[in-house]
C-alpha cells in the first residue's frame, strides 16, 4: 500500500530510528532464517517437491543476506536475541507440527502466515524505506509471492483432506501473529509503518490465499479475523 500523504522527512541515521530498526531488522533477518530452515524441513516432508522447496529455501537465505546488508548500511546491529524470542511461539508450533508430520499445518505457518505477514510488512515498508533498503526489499517481495504460491497450490490440491487441519492451525497461530504485531507496534511506528495498515494488508493477502485454496468468503472473514480483537 503506497503512502497516501507525503512522507514526513525520516532521519534514517537518528538514534531513535536506528534503535527501532535494530529490532525490526532483527526480526526480518530471523524471519528469513526461520523460513530457510522451515523449507528445508518441508523438503524432507514432501520429497516429491524437494527441488522446489530447496530452491525456496535458498532464496530465503539470500534474502537474509540482503537484509543484513541493510543493517550494515545504517550501521545498525540487528537485535537477534529479541528476534528469536519474537518468533519462539511460531517456531515451536512449526516444530511440533513437523514432528507429527502435519504438512498442512506447517504450510499454514510458513507459507501462508509468515509469507503473508512478510509481504504485508515489506509492502508497507517500501515507501518509507531508505533508498538502499527499498531496492533490496522490492526484490525480496517479488520472491515472497512465489513462496506463498507454493503453499496455496499444495493446500488447494489437498483442500478436502486438510481443511480441518488448516482451520486448526489458523486458530492456533493467528492469535500469535496479532500478539507479535503488538510487540513491534511502537518500533514499526518509528519506521513510519502503521499497525492498522499492516493488519489490513495482512488480512488482504491472507484472505486472498485462503480464497485461492478454496475457502468461501464466509470462511475467510471468520478465519482471517480470528483472535484479532482479543489481541
Amino acid at each position: 500500500m503506497p503512502q497516501l500523504q507525503a512522507s514526513p522527512d525520516i532521519d534514517f541515521h537518528s538514534d531513535t530510528y536506528r534503535d527501532a530498526y535494530s529490532r525490526i531488522n532483527g526480526i526480518v533477518i530471523e524471519g528469513e532464517q526461520e523460513a530457510h530452515e522451515n523449507y528445508i524441513r518441508l523438503a524432507e516432508m514432501l520429497p516429491n517437491h524437494k527441488d522446489d522447496l530447496l530452491r525456496l529455501s535458498k532464496m530465503e537465505a539470500r534474502h537474509r543476506k540482503g537484509f543484513e546488508a541493510c543493517a550494515r548500511n545504517l550501521s545498525v546491529t540487528p537485535d537477534l536475541g529479541f528476534a528469536s524470542q519474537f518468533f519462539a511461539s511460531l517456531h515451536e508450533n512449526f516444530q511440533v507440527a513437523a514432528s507429527e508430520n502435519k504438512v498442512a499445518a506447517c504450510l499454514v505457518i510458513q507459507s501462508l502466515i509468515i509469507e503473508c505477514f512478510a509481504i504485508a510488512a515489506y509492502n508497507i515498508y517500501i515507501p518509507v524505506a531508505d533508498d538502499f533498503a527499498r531496492k533490496i526489499t522490492e526484490g525480496v517481495v517479488k520472491d515472497e509471492y512465489s513462496h506463498l504460491n507454493f503453499g496455496e497450490v499444495w493446500l488447494k490440491d489437498n483442500f478436502e483432506a486438510t481443511k480441518e487441519e488448516v482451520e486448526a492451525a489458523n486458530r492456533q497461530n493467528l492469535p500469535i501473529v496479532w500478539r507479535m504485531l503488538n510487540e513491534v507496534e511502537k518500533d514499526a511506528k518509528v519506521l513510519n509503518m502503521e499497525k492498522e495498515a499492516l493488519v489490513e494488508d495482512f488480512m488482504i493477502q491472507y484472505g486472498e490465499a485462503l480464497s485461492n485454496i478454496g475457502f468461501t468468503t464466509r470462511d475467510i472473514m471468520k478465519m482471517s479475523a480470528y483472535g484479532l480483537v482479543a489481541a
Binding site: E196, V199, E200, M203, I204, G207, M221, K222, S224, A225, Y226, L228, V229
Partner: peptide
C-alpha cells in the same frame, strides 16, 4: 466476528 467490533476494527478490515 465483524458484528461486535468498534471503529478500530473496521479501520483494519479488508
Amino acid at each position: 466476528e465483524y458484528a461486535d467490533q468498534g471503529l478500530d476494527f473496521w479501520c483494519m478490515a479488508p
